[in-house]
């Protein structure tokens, strides 16, 4: 069993907790309860014949006045950088989250989730600029959530 610590990083209210809840418990709630500090969820999975236990850190989102404390980043193998497609400023903020994360974990891997794609009209989807290693996700409609986590696990697999 390979145990790996991964983080979900991003601004507040982008859906980090919902993505974890969908992936770990296959559940979703529309109620918004802001995360404070950190909460760890475990998920066992098999990828390419290897058994993993993921320790998924759901970390309090960054706000205009408070960045995410970097002491949570120590020893993480990878991170999912999450943005809310309905709030373009949260997409712009991802580069800074990536920089701060890589400063602590230079050899780690990141993938990106542009979340809440269920709120985007289908005709607008074509105009979204999607960088490499980025997934359009919806925790609500369970779109690309497993793929997002499994892609990160493949990247961090030994």
């Amino acid at each position: 069993m390979i145990r790996k610590k991964i983080l979900l990083l991003g601004d507040f209210h982008v859906g980090k907790t919902s993505l974890i809840r969908r992936y770990v418990d296959n559940a979703f709630s529309d109620d918004y309860l802001t995360t404070i500090g950190v909460k760890i969820s475990k998920k066992a999975l098999k990828v390419d014949g290897l058994d993993f236990e993921l320790l998924i850190w759901d970390i309090e989102g960054a706000t205009p006045v408070k960045k995410i404390p970097t002491h949570y980043f120590a020893g993480a193998a990878g991170a999912i950088l999450v943005a809310d497609l309905t709030r373009p400023e949260t997409i712009k903020g991802l580069d800074e989250h990536a920089l701060r994360f890589h400063a602590v974990n230079p050899k780690s891997v990141c993938v990106r989730a542009y979340n809440k794609v269920d709120l985007i009209p289908e005709e607008s989807l074509g105009s979204i600029d999607i960088p490499p290693d980025t997934f359009l996700t919806s925790a609500k409609d369970d779109i690309n959530v497993s793929l997002l986590f499994e892609t990160l696990v493949r990247r961090i697999a030994p």
Binding site: I36, G37, V38, I40, H71, Y72, A74, G75
Partner: peptide
């Protein structure tokens, strides 16, 4: 945090904290 714990064992670091854990 294994590396940090190791340093605390060896006295290279006196302590560390992880705050606000649910």
């Amino acid at each position: 945090s294994e590396e940090k714990m190791h340093k605390v064992f060896d006295g290279e670091k006196s302590s560390f904290a992880i705050t606000t854990v649910s």
